[in-house]
């Protein structure tokens, strides 16, 4: 009974905060123009609180917003689009609640132009993701932003859709890379 009560309270807490999340993210769905952005917008409905009470490894739970690991960017841009904030917030929260956890952010760029310049563009994207996570509460020392440039494309066709998929930052926790 006691456990049931605590569980109920936790559920109430989660519900309370989830409504906050929805409110913050409510303008997001309209912005959904890019491939991959749709899933991220959906994550706004389930920002978890008190992860310590949720059983199992949240990193392995496909329903958790922590399962979302990619941030997409516009051509020649490195600013984090608003639809990725809720998902990054979930990761920042997880990082701040697990201080021993480390994260590698791999920035990527599309294949057009110089390899080294694209490496730098990927780096700028990884740096932007890291900066956002740190502002959201993760600690600087937990995160290493690096770049793969154009070297590891997720999509190899020469189309705009494909290039958009390659302009990306990927989040990995220790043991995952």
């Amino acid at each position: 009974m006691r456990r049931a009560l605590l569980g109920l309270m936790a559920a109430a807490l989660v519900a309370g905060c989830a409504s906050t999340g929805t409110e913050e993210g409510s303008g997001v769905a309209v912005e959904d123009r890019k491939p991959g952005a749709g899933g991220a917008a959906g994550s706004a409905t389930s920002v978890p609180i008190g992860t310590t009470t949720i059983p199992g490894d949240p990193l392995k739970d496909p329903a958790s917003p922590l399962a979302k690991r990619s941030v997409y960017f516009d051509f020649d841009r490195d600013d984090i689009k608003p639809e990725f904030r809720p998902m990054l917030e979930a990761h920042a929260r997880y990082l701040s609640s697990t201080p021993n956890q480390k994260m590698l952010i791999q920035g990527n760029a599309d294949e057009r132009g110089s390899r080294e310049y694209n490496l730098a563009l990927g780096q700028r994207r990884a740096d932007a993701v890291k900066r956002t996570l740190v502002l959201m509460g993760a600690r600087e020392a937990q995160i290493e932003p690096v770049s793969l440039g154009e070297e590891k494309p997720r999509c190899t066709e020469q189309t705009e859709d494909c290039w958009a998929q390659n302009r990306r930052g990927d989040l990995f926790y220790s043991g995952e890379f």
């Binding site: 009974m1 006691r2 009560l5 109920l8 309270m9 109430a12 807490l13 309370g16 905060c17 409504s19 906050t20 409110e23």
Partner: peptide, 28 residues
């Protein structure tokens, strides 16, 4: 601010439940 209100509501609920628990001597 709505978030804070919700949190306050939850606190009230928690205290209420705790008080109820004591009244019924479910735990010491």
């Amino acid at each position: 601010m709505r978030a804070v209100a919700v949190v306050r509501g939850v606190v009230a609920l928690g205290i209420l439940l705790a008080a109820a628990g004591r009244a019924h001597a479910i735990f010491p």
